[in-house]
Amino acid sequence: MTQTLLPVALANYVGLSAVIFFIGVAGVMLRRNPLVMLMSIELMWNAANLLFLAFARAWMNDAGHIFAFLVITVAAAEAAIGLAIVVAVFRTARNVDVDEVALMKG
């Protein structure tokens, strides 16, 4: 038995991914907690992933799928390093508000 997927127009995917991307951008710009900022960055990256998958289907080009897998892998490595750095900063500063992590200015 074949199942037909509901046809979803490309524009919907692009619109959704744009919204997610801007939520991510706003999070990085407005929030001051590094953990939240890292999560917002993940949103930006995953918005791009969604776009890759949507275009992969629109163009019938598997490269978009492979790119998305690549991004997921790199994002995992990035998150591991990011959390390690946040922990290291927290150990010295006892807080993780980026406004108070400001020894260097100018």
Partner: peptide, 17 residues
Amino acid sequence: REAALKYLILSSAASGF
């Protein structure tokens, strides 16, 4: 460590763009 945190967040955001 502060430099690492700043670089991590700004650079990852730039990578996102």
